[in-house]
Design a protein around this nucleic acid. Structure first.
Length: 494
DNA sequence: AATGCCGGGGG
DNA sequence: CCCCCGGCATT
């Protein structure tokens, strides 16, 4: 069980390293040309992507997740090494001059190291130097990849420029190497002071990378054109199709947690369209509530008002509600249209992932307990691939989920305001499941509109522990407002 | 007796 | 609207 970030990036156009088709085990650099969803499901229920990669040698080959190596910023040490190695192997554009220089550099350092008396210090120096050289390699690699990208793409887009580029390649490389070397000494450079193809910026049109960002951890990254923060270079209009985002999910859908580091570098204005027909919904985790709404703000509002018993002016919120809902990924590959219309991915999606973002300022990262589970619903018959991926980012939630899940309810509540917002007034099927271990012995499916009007008689006394019992009289200030007012508890709803 | 909460009322 | 509480039902 674990949670995952919502961030889902397109890998199209991304540079990767992939095993050579010759089967010699070598890694070749390439560009992702297409991504398709494999038509089977894994044991975990998550789907897998198949990447079509245009390799350096011009061949097109399909790879699975595991085969390709993506951005170093998203790799673990081993993969990184692999990647670096591959980059080094394919360093065809690096001038032999540079390589010689590097070698002599290394030799020099080694000599110094041997000759020096303070060996420990020298060793440190040497390490540092080596690291710098590694960086240099990486940069060179990215330069080469950039160039490669030019070769691949520019022929159809900007031939004159491509020619110009190849003419200037030698100089550019040297310049780039120098600049990058100097860059490597300053750890926090996020926007490159120099562009490799200086002045023209043509690569932008091609969605090309600028070998730019340098994280403090020493790993470079490819920064998207939109990341250009240089105010003197206005962003050209991005031609939608040629300028894909370059973010590479290290794994398909099920592990986006470690994007954090790259997130900073790779951040983008967020998804246009969700791949894999994934709908993201937000589920209320209050016990026996399980309300599902399509927007984060909606669910926050819901929790605020219904469970926390306070009016939620969106700005007076203390964020507590964040802990009481979770994100649900609903794989709607073959889900009925009714459902799809129920849960249009709201354009306010961009406000959704923030809840799980560790970069969110002012919100302390809570213990990152993770949870993933699959719920089956009676609807499964008509929607065999309907898949819930529930994850909670808070211990409380997990606990709640664990308690609730076995007999949990998956409930689609066409909340009026949400529907009004999204303009889908259709009344979708109302799904409810009850499992074992709950006070609801019989499972039932309700295909009507939510029984919100069923509140009439005096509510029978709830069975669960309420605030008074849970917190005690002495902690009255911890009670929910309703309890404090001797109203029906809204925190522990039965 | 303790608890849950409806209905009503004060500010 | 926010808050408190009497009083009743329930456990």
């Amino acid at each position: 069980m674990y949670s995952r970030r919502l961030v889902k990036r397109s890998i199209l156009g991304s540079r990767v390293c992939a095993p050579s088709p010759t089967g010699d085990g070598a890694l070749l650099p390439g560009v992702v040309q297409a991504v398709k969803l494999e038509n089977r499901e894994t044991v975990q229920g998550s789907r897998r992507n198949v990447y079509t990669v245009l390799l350096q040698d011009g061949t097109l080959k399909e790879y699975s997740e595991e085969e390709i190596v993506t951005s170093p910023a998203q790799m673990t040490g081993k993969a990184q090494l692999k990647f670096k190695t591959a980059c080094t192997d394919c360093e065809m554009v690096t001038t032999s001059q540079q390589q010689e220089q590097r070698k002599s550099d290394i030799n020099q350092k080694n000599k110094q190291k041997l000759l020096g008396k303070e060996e420990a210090i020298k060793r440190l120096d040497s390490k540092k130097a080596n690291r710098i050289q590694d960086h240099e390699k990486d940069h060179t690699c990215s330069v080469s990849l950039l160039e490669q990208k030019h070769k691949v793409v520019s022929s159809s887009i900007d031939v004159p420029h491509a020619r110009k580029l190849s003419e200037e390649v030698a100089m550019d490389k040297v310049t780039a190497a120098m600049v990058l070397t100097s860059l490597s000494t300053s750890p926090l450079v996020h926007s490159p002071p120099v562009k490799v193809n200086d002045g023209t910026n043509e690569s932008w049109k091609e969605g090309g990378f600028n070998p730019s960002s340098y994280s403090s951890s020493g790993y470079w990254s490819w920064s998207a054109p939109s990341d250009q923060s240089n105010p003197s270079t206005p962003s050209p209009p991005l031609s939608t199709d040629s300028c894909k985002p370059f973010h590479i999910p290290s794994q398909p859908d099920d592990d986006i947690d470690e994007v954090d580091a790259s997130n900073l570098l790779f951040d983008e204005p967020i998804p246009r369209k969700r791949k894999n027909s994934l709908k993201v919904m937000f589920k209320c985790l209050w016990k026996n509530c399980g309300k599902v709404l399509s927007t984060a703000t909606g669910i926050q509002k819901h929790i605020c008002t219904v469970h926390l018993g306070r009016s939620c002016d969106s700005d007076c919120s203390d964020g507590e509600e964040d802990f009481y809902y979770t994100e649900i990924k609903l794989n709607t590959d073959s889900v009925t249209d009714g459902l799809s219309s129920l849960s249009p991915v709201s354009p306010s999606m961009d406000s959704a992932p923030h809840i799980f973002s560790s970069t969110e300022p002012g919100r302390p990262e809570s213990v990152c307990m993770k949870n993933e589970s699959k719920l089956s619903t009676p609807l499964s018959r008509s929607a065999p691939s309907t898949l819930y991926l529930v994850h909670a980012d808070h211990a409380y939630q997990v606990k709640g989920l664990l308690q609730v899940l076995p007999g949990s309810e998956a409930e689609w509540c066409p909340q009026t305001d949400t529907l009004a917002q999204t303009g889908h007034p259709a009344s979708p099927p109302h799904i409810r499941t009850h499992g074992f271990g709950e006070h609801h012995p019989q499972a039932h499916v309700v295909l009507s509109s939510p029984p919100r009007a069923a509140v009439g008689l005096r509510k029978s006394r709830g069975e669960g522990k309420k605030c008074r019992k849970v917190y005690g009289m002495e902690n009255r200030d911890m009670w929910c407002t309703a309890c404090r007012w001797k109203k029906a508890c809204q925190r522990f709803i039965d």
